[in-house]
Design a protein around this nucleic acid. Structure first.
Length: 526
RNA sequence: GGCUGGGUAGCUCAGGUGGUCAGAGCACACGACUCAUAAUCGUGGGGUCGCGGGUUCGAGUCCCGCCCCAGCUACCA
């Protein structure tokens, strides 16, 4: 029996969108959580990707004189893969819905549903835009004015609408309402946080309508296996990525190891798809549902939800170029409560960068390395007998690591970082109180000085390991300066469950002066 | 309209089941220290906990009403 794998996903982002910090946020948190799980020693599979089908992509490609495939290839290369590098994501897989594995898997999935009698042919009616060749949701339907008076128009593009009926295939979502409610009841953690769960439960209680799952008015999509005149409705097809990327229909062994997913990270705008439709589809296919669907909140910029239409969509590079990927990752992990809406601002990023990263963590590493260099020629001193002050540090570290680990389990990364930061604060205080610079003046207290600096260095070791999931680059730099790799191995391989064990750094190891982990930034010029 | 959240110090936010719950961080002021990235450590000022009622010996914490803010109210993705 293979070791269970922690399988986590982000949504697949719509390739037509411009990447912004909302995408970066979801991916960053998922990355932090999965990196932590890896350092627990678990097998981890972190999936992200892009959704490439649908009418909008087709139209955009045509407008750019490109074939849809060329168009999405270009966007993936120029926008989406670079975003992952920008935010330093360590995903294990990247699914594109135009890949063969997805198309084959999606067809296998729908064939299975068809064979099980979970698909029927019906009529879909709705407001249809002839101009843009698509059905428009009710919320985007408005009464026309001026020359469109007397007609309905789309608020998406202003085009005139007709009420049209089209024959397509349906999934009987309505009959799953009871089973879904039972699922929410039996597994309260299935949808988190609580507010999202309440929304979903209320929605399902109010009754479900069957879902049209195919389109026949255009062909940029995956054909239904039993009727190639229809392509899968893109939203439903997109959900399938979580199983197709895991090997559904093409690699049973891989699928068996990965499915069900441990957690789907989603924005709260798409919980319904993930917490209602998705589990119903899986039930219909006879597959287990994921363990958790975790919905995060909106990023509020100046009190408003960030969006393109409000022109406050921010690309991750705007932040990373100034502060670096580590600070970006730190900020979004620490400053927001995952699951709630939260305010972000350039000023706040700058303030936290300086107060917490530069002054707090970076300076701590700097002062410890400097003193070991100055008083011990850069050779890590051994610790003598531990005084209550050192034992206090050891206890603080153990408690903080345990609390952080528990917070990650709850998917509360902000609490995990807050817990770890208690170590930063405790070490800065410890150094101030033990005054190693004063102890250094007394040659008879050489061992005491060594104990203090050894303890501080051990504390840095713990910080490097526990903060590595959040800030891979700075912690790697710290690991290097601690001279830890020759004895302890690569940083990414350090285990959380062993990190609080004291005295792991070998006395005599070469501690080098840390290049500023987080150099101060002149924001007036940035 | 209905539903789900939220409205707590200048700012960002913590505060299950009512009784050190009036807090944290930042910012600000003053002091200490000098190993360090003009960093660190300590002290302090500052809030009618959206508004109005009510229950209670006692309410940010429960009930009623009201006012703001955000989201959802299904097939754009």
């Amino acid at each position: 029996m293979p070791e269970p794998t922690f399988y986590a996903t982000t949504p697949i982002y719509y390739v037509n969108d411009a990447p912004h910090i909302g995408h970066g946020y979801t991916t960053t948190i998922a990355d932090v959580i999965t990196r932590w799980h890896r350092q627990r020693g678990e097998r981890v599979h972190f999936l992200t990707g892009v959704d490439e089908h649908g009418q909008k992509v087709l139209r955009k490609a045509q407008a750019n004189d490109a074939s849809p495939q060329d168009w999405v290839d270009r966007l993936v290369e120029s926008e989406w893969l670079p975003m992952l590098r920008t935010i330093d994501a360590a995903n294990d897989d990247f699914i594109r819905t135009t890949e063969e594995r997805h198309e084959k898997g999606a067809q296998a999935f729908w064939q299975e549903l068809y064979d099980r009698g979970e698909v029927y042919k019906g009529e879909f009616s709705g407001w249809y835009s002839v101009g843009s060749e698509e059905f428009v949701a009710d919320e985007y339907v408005a009464d026309g004015e001026g020359e469109d008076a007397g007609h309905k128009v789309s608020t998406l593009d202003g085009s005139r609408l007709e009420y049209l009926t089209e024959e397509n295939y349906f999934f009987p979502l309505s009959k799953y309402a009871d089973r879904l409610l039972e699922l929410y009841e039996q597994r309260p953690d299935f949808i988190q946080p609580e507010s999202a769960r309440n929304e979903v439960v209320a929605f399902v209680r109010s009754g479900l309508k069957d879902l049209s799952i195919s389109r026949s008015t255009f062909d940029w999509g995956i054909p239904l296996p039993w009727d190639e005149s229809h392509v899968m409705y893109v939203w439903i097809e997109a959900l399938l990525n979580y199983v197709t990327a895991a090997g559904y229909g093409v690699d049973d062994e891989r699928f068996g190891e990965l499915w069900p997913a441990n957690v789907h990270f989603v924005g709260k705008d798409i919980v319904r798809f993930h917490a209602v439709i998705w589990p119903a589809l899986l039930m219909a296919a006879g597959l287990p549902v994921p363990h958790r669907v975790f919905a995060h909140g909106w990023l509020l910029v100046g009190g408003q939800k960030m969006s393109k239409s409000k022109a406050n969509g921010i690309h991750p590079t705007e932040i990373v170029d100034t502060f670096g990927s580590d600070a970006y990752r730190y900020y979004f992990t620490r400053a927001l409560t995952f699951g709630s809406d939260g305010s972000i601002s350039w000023e706040d990023i700058g303030a936290r960068y300086h107060a917490e990263l530069a002054n707090g963590f970076g300076n701590l590493a700097s002062r410890v390395a400097a003193m070991i260099g100055k008083y011990f020629d850069g050779a890590l001193p051994a610790a003598g007998e531990l005084s209550p002050a050192e034992r206090g540090i050891v206890d603080t570290v153990a408690a903080a690591v345990a609390e952080a680990d528990e917070a990650i389990e709850r998917i509360a990364p902000q609490d995990a970082v807050a817990a770890i930061w208690r170590i930063v604060d405790a070490l800065n205080l410890y150094i101030t109180e033990t005054q190693p610079w004063a102890v250094a003046k007394d040659e008879s207290q050489r061992e005491r000085l060594g104990t203090i600096l050894n303890t501080a260095a051990e504390g840095l070791r713990v910080l490097a390991v526990t903060l590595h999931p959040v800030m891979p680059k700075a912690t790697a730099s710290l690991w290097e300066s601690l001279g830890a790799e020759p004895d302890l191995g690569p940083l990414a391989a350090q285990r959380i469950d062993q990190v609080a064990t004291w005295g792991r750094l070998r006395p005599g190891s070469t501690i080098t002066k840390v290049p500023s982990l987080f150099p101060r930034i002149d924001l007036a010029q940035a």
